[in-house]
Design a protein around this nucleic acid. Structure first.
Length: 203
DNA sequence: TGGATGATGGCCT
DNA sequence: GGCCATCATCCAA
């Protein structure tokens, strides 16, 4: 993809659309994180939708409401982060207040601050810098401190990027123990992009 | 208060 | 493909 010069937070209203629509709309957008060490950013190339109370794979399944999931019950565009083993995963809260749905950002195509990303990741292989949900948070310096922030303002925001030529859709990853939910086709990625976390069949 | 549990990643064979 | 580091969170007791 081409370099994009302008990094402006999208408006709050951008996030107020149905979760599946938002999961697709986020593809091609730019995720930006500013820290004292510098700015890092990348195109969002892979997302997964988690559909709330009726989705067994969602943390908010059956309206489970805990300290961790609390932010999912706030309005669209909030930042939901949680720790998975040794990594932090970042989600965009979606749907209206008290409708706890969210979109996991699974992979980025590195765009800005690649040297800083290399330092944080301890590697210098561009292709493996941000091609997974735990990798991209480490590369961008995203942590639990970002929990509860909003994506329409600094220092962690989403900017308009490019419109993908084609979007692919398939099963979500890493939720094998969630019964029928594991087969729901709620993973989206930019067709043919080199930085998606796994190359998998469409469904 | 303690044991079980991961929406992962890196390393191994 | 398998193994497991490592820790916040959750929940049963």
């Amino acid at each position: 993809m081409q370099e994009d010069k302008k990094l402006m937070p999208l408006k709050k209203e951008f996030f107020t659309k149905p979760t599946i629509d938002l999961a697709r709309s986020l593809l091609g957008c730019i995720l930006v994180k500013e820290t004292k060490d510098g700015i890092t950013a990348g195109y969002i190339v892979e997302t997964e939708a988690y559909m709330g109370p009726m989705d067994r794979a969602a943390h908010s399944y059956q309206n489970r409401r805990t300290k961790r999931t609390e932010i999912m019950y706030s309005e669209a565009g909030h930042v939901y982060i949680y720790q998975m083993h040794t990594h932090c995963l970042i989600n965009v809260v979606s749907n209206e207040k008290d409708k706890p749905e969210a979109i996991l950002i699974r992979a980025l195509e590195p765009l800005i601050g690649i040297d800083l990303m290399n330092d944080r990741r301890g590697i210098s292989d561009k292709r493996n810098l941000t091609n997974g949900p735990g990798k991209l948070t480490k590369a961008l310096g995203i942590s639990m401190e970002d929990y509860g922030r909003v994506f329409w303002d600094h220092p962690l925001f989403i900017s308009q990027g490019l419109t993908p030529q084609s979007i692919s859709q398939g099963k979500r990853i890493g939720i094998e123990k969630t019964g029928e939910a594991k087969d729901y086709p709620w993973r989206f990625w930019i067709t043919g992009n080199r930085f998606v976390s796994r190359h998998q069949k469409e469904s």
